[in-house]
Design a protein around this nucleic acid. Sequence first.
DNA 1: CTTATACGTTAAGGAATTGTTAATCCTATC
DNA 2: GATAGGATTAACAATTCCTTAACGTATAAG
Lengths: 223, 223
Amino acid sequence: MSGEKILLVDDEQDIVELLEYNLRKEGYQVRTALNGQEALKIASSYKPDLVILDVMMPVMDGMQTCEALRKSPNHNGVIIAMLTARAEDYSQIAGFDAGADDYITKPVKPKVLVSRVKALLRRGTSVIGIPDENLSIVINRDKYLVIKEGNEFNLPKKEFELLNLLYSQPGSVFTRQNILSSVWGDEVVVGDRTIDVHIRKLREKLGSEHFVTIKGVGYKFQH
Amino acid sequence: MSGEKILLVDDEQDIVELLEYNLRKEGYQVRTALNGQEALKIASSYKPDLVILDVMMPVMDGMQTCEALRKSPNHNGVIIAMLTARAEDYSQIAGFDAGADDYITKPVKPKVLVSRVKALLRRGTSVIGIPDENLSIVINRDKYLVIKEGNEFNLPKKEFELLNLLYSQPGSVFTRQNILSSVWGDEVVVGDRTIDVHIRKLREKLGSEHFVTIKGVGYKFQH
DNA sequence: CTTATACGTTAAGGAATTGTTAATCCTATC
DNA sequence: GATAGGATTAACAATTCCTTAACGTATAAG
């Protein structure tokens, strides 16, 4: 048994206990949280492989939590499963769009959940990368900080978000369209050269070797 | 649009057509089969990235097909989603035990299926990135990279897309017409020598042994 | 051998995309 | 409402890449 780490987040104590018991029985490490805020706090030190998130929660709901996790570079590659009582389409789609990997409807029987978890982790483990070692550039999203070779930088908002996006999947190309909708949002219209100018500033501050242009396609970050 | 290959297997013609239409609209390549036996036959040449399998089918059901696919070394890493009208637990578990990656209950609305497919492939593509040792040339579409004997190449857009097309079905011949409409699009008109020049550049960079001319017909890629 | 047809090669021009700079427009904060 | 830092734009430069034209080569048919 591999003992992958699972973070289980639901505001209903009964459900949490039931599912926790069943997951532990299968050999997983389990920690729990009662809302999204608590979940994020735990996740930052616990580094779970899989997060099971209830959609309906007080304080911070599953969707918000999911987005927060996806945006955080500390949780790169984490698998997220959403748990909800509502089987309606729009909520499923919203869940996936927030970056969830799976969507499980409540009530869920323990055996079913365990099966689902197994399937997710089976796929996931091959993805989970080698831990980052001496990376020259590190992002601290909480503090809105970039650390390059020990020196801290304070980037302006847009630059930071652009960096954060590219950094979230180092090596992968983001199209201009991707970048626009992630950093600027779909409704905003900005000129053609706006992205370039921000890229330029990042190159100036962090070194142009990290930002690769794929002409006609987009940009990517590399360490 | 990435154009991953999906094999859709269901014995109900109506459902197949509906889902096929919706998946194609999202830019996926789709082929269909009406039972498991047919599915295996198609899969062996088509090499799908994702197989969507109905559980209840004549001739060879989804479970058997799933197991067969998992056992076959030709379909290493393929993602399998099961589709069934029954939401009961035991069938879900049986499905997962046969090695399915996801489980979708019918009736499924097209939008929901598409979301599910996206989530599955999102996770899947990052797995595909691990180079297959035996292959001298590997394409990583996310990173817009070609890896030849461990060395990474950054190809210009058109060259990359041409390679990507030929590479999608190694050994199969693509006619000039095929190539033009896939890489350049149907409305664009380009001169007679344009394709040749791009092929030449690919041969220069990756070795001419990989690009075979079939005179009067077209080109094919071979490892 | 000649001719026709399809593909190969090369280099140059132009088209398209991106880089750069500086000025201007915002927006939050005092 | 003044100010400062950030965001955006416009104009132009630079670069890369795509396409083409012209010519070369190969193969098969008459």
